[in-house]
Design a protein around this nucleic acid. Structure first.
Length: 611
DNA sequence: ATAGGGTTAG
């Protein structure tokens, strides 16, 4: 256009940057900035919409600082921020759980005379639901009603999502019924949320009932419904069923997307089925889809799992040059990997690198670093990180508190563990079954069995839930203290409560019975151990798992050939050989699969090269 | 041409 001496108007420009901003990558923001400066030079006057689009771009790339700066500089360009400008940033901050900044920005907004509208309220409801503050979410709904901004389907859907996340499916369904009474009709998103909630809480038959129900009501399934079902099957290890859903999705005229494929990739990664991972990644490319952050992070995860930390770090380093957005999940994955390999130093170094790159950590990232520090015996540094996240207005979750309590117990500081526990209960901490188990274990380890039993009884009296770990912890401690009959009493209690015993229960009891010379009982207990629920969940595709000893010589030769081609950067040729190998049904060496997979990740074209 | 809900990764 410029070459033709045509001057784009502001609408053309806005359209252009909207497209760029929609798919955030390393280059798109940079390009947007360049274009923006270019537009200014051409004498174009940006409008509030222009700036709002740019703000959205920064938010999508998690650059909230830049977004805020742009907001402050709007007057320089002769425009004023509106509700959209604020809502965009508010939503981004809610997404990351940065509640302090949310509060500050809301105040700033009101100071400018802008009143929160329905979108603003819904953003806040969403933010609270995400961190499980359902009471606060309900308060916002109350506020909406007071301000004559009645909650809509969006509001209700988010409340339903919040309840599902807390496992409160029945309450969620009740709210759904409430909607119908208010003439707010549940839509496909309501159903997707509920179906997802059921599947996550092991209530899959209800999930399928809901699916049936939405069909009857004429609400059409969409990609997300199918992706949710795929995830459900993947979680149960039913890969064949997951593939069936993918098939059905295509038959119904819907296109599997990145989410569908990433879900499968992640499941196959967990099953160690690298050939399948590679096959799907290849498929993504053939379909004209691009691998995204999720694909990248999944690969980083499996590299870390295989303890290939150097390779993972290399991938993390080159990813931005390939257009991928390296984010808090990418860093969290590697930091977890380093801690697992007991390389605390590198883990901490990576945390610093993350901060230097202005990648914003979430509560999960903080939980990782806090857990790692605790495990390395640096509980004080862990506490420092806790204070740091609190200062940022990030809300800790149960995992954060449990990790620190565990840390104190780990270093044998039971007293501090309880002090911390009590102090946090005064705040917002709701101890869960993990908390109970951690404290029981800590007390037992320090030989304070009586206190453990007391804690256990109080816990039960409060009507709190227990699990097999709770019982195992006490049973093991009782056995060690030669209180075998008390331990057997707990086994009976488990039976009553329908808590299935596992190999830990078994080992403790059989060992103690044997030591006590009660061999007959030990034998009885042993024959009793094969219970249906104890049988391991089998992946459908476990037989495909690579086994080094099954590789024949041709496989090794092919693997070598492919490795060499990849080392020369000749991925295309390597993929050709790979195609031949697959046709002949030969498996490659594990590391060769990794090499090819990394090749596919690296091949992602960046926007700057195509554009 | 701009803002809010449901699916995938640590």
């Amino acid at each position: 256009m410029k070459r033709l001496r045509l001057c784009p108007n502001i609408i053309t420009f806005n359209t252009l940057i909207t497209a760029l901003v929609k798919y955030p990558s390393t280059h798109s923001l940079f390009l947007c900035n360049e274009l923006f400066n270019d537009a200014l030079k051409l004498g174009l006057c940006p409008t509030t919409i222009t700036i709002n689009i740019l703000i959205k771009g920064y938010c999508l790339a998690y650059k909230y600082k830049d977004a805020n700066q742009l907001l402050d500089r709007m007057s320089e360009f002769g425009c004023v921020p509106d509700n959209v400008s604020y809502n965009t940033i508010l939503d981004g901050l809610c997404e990351k759980g940065r509640l302090n900044e949310v509060r500050d920005l809301l105040l700033d907004m009101k100071g400018k005379g802008l009143m929160p509208n329905r979108n603003t309220y819904n953003i806040l409801v969403h933010g609270y639901c995400k961190i499980g503050w359902l009471k606060d979410a309900a308060q916002i709904v109350e506020l909406m009603t007071q301000n004559n901004t009645l909650p809509d389907v969006w509001t209700y859907n988010m409340l339903i999502g919040g309840l599902c996340n807390e496992g409160r499916i029945d309450d969620a369904i009740r709210i759904r019924d409430e909607m119908v009474g208010l003439k707010l009709l549940p839509d496909v998103k309501t159903y997707n949320t509920l179906i997802n909630g059921c599947l996550d809480n092991k209530r899959s038959s209800e999930a399928f009932d809901l699916l049936e129900e939405m069909n009857q009501k004429g609400i059409k399934c969409n990609e997300i419904t199918y992706n949710t079902l795929i995830k459900g099957y993947c979680k149960e290890g039913k890969m064949d069923k997951a593939r069936e859903v993918l098939q059905k999705m295509e038959e119904s005229g819907l296109c599997p997307d990145c989410v569908s494929y990433n879900t499968l990739i992640s499941a196959y990664c967990k099953a160690g089925n690298l050939p399948e991972v590679l096959r799907i990644m290849k498929r993504i490319g053939e379909k004209g889809l691009k691998m995204d952050n999720f694909s990248l992070n999944t690969l980083l995860h499996i590299l870390c799992q295989e303890r290939k930390l150097d390779e993972a770090y290399e991938l993390l380093s080159v990813a931005p040059t390939r257009g991928y957005l390296v984010d808090a999940v990418s860093y969290g994955t590697l930091i977890t990997g380093y801690f697992r390999c007991a390389d605390t130093e590198k883990a901490l170094k990576l945390w610093d690198e993350m901060e230097e790159r202005e990648v914003i950590p979430t509560i999960v990232t903080y939980n990782i670093i806090i857990g790692g520090l605790c495990k390395s015996g640096k509980t004080q540094q862990a506490i420092a990180k806790l204070n740091e996240l609190l200062e940022k207005g990030i809300v800790p979750d149960e995992i954060t508190y449990n990790t620190i309590i565990h840390g104190y117990c780990w270093e044998g500081n039971i007293e501090k563990a309880f002090q911390f526990h009590n102090k946090m209960v005064e705040n917002s901490f709701k101890p869960d079954v993990y908390t109970c188990n951690i404290l029981l274990r800590g007390l037992s380890r320090e030989g304070m069995l009586e206190k453990a039993i007391k804690l256990f009884n109080t816990w039960i009296d409060k009507g709190k839930t227990t699990d097999v770990v709770t019982y195992n912890t006490l049973i093991t401690a009782l056995c060690k203290d030669q209180r075998l009959d008390d331990a057997l009493g707990l086994v009976a209690e488990m039976e009553e409560k329908n808590i299935q015993r596992d190999k830990y229960t078994h080992n403790a009891i059989v060992g103690a019975l044997t030591d006590a010379g009660r061999l007959k009982e030990a034998e009885e207990f042993m024959t009793d151990r094969e219970r249906p629920s104890e049988q391991r969940l089998q992946m459908d595709d476990r037989e495909h798992e690579l086994r080094v000893d099954e590789l024949d010589s041709s496989s090794i030769a092919y693997s070598q050939q492919i490795d060499e081609l990849c080392a020369e950067g000749r991925y295309k040729d390597a993929m050709l050989i790979y195609a031949q190998v697959t046709q002949r049904g030969i498996d490659l060496q594990k590391s060769t699969y990794f090499t090819l997979i990394k090749g596919l990740i690296k091949r992602r074209k960046s926007i700057s090269k195509t554009g």
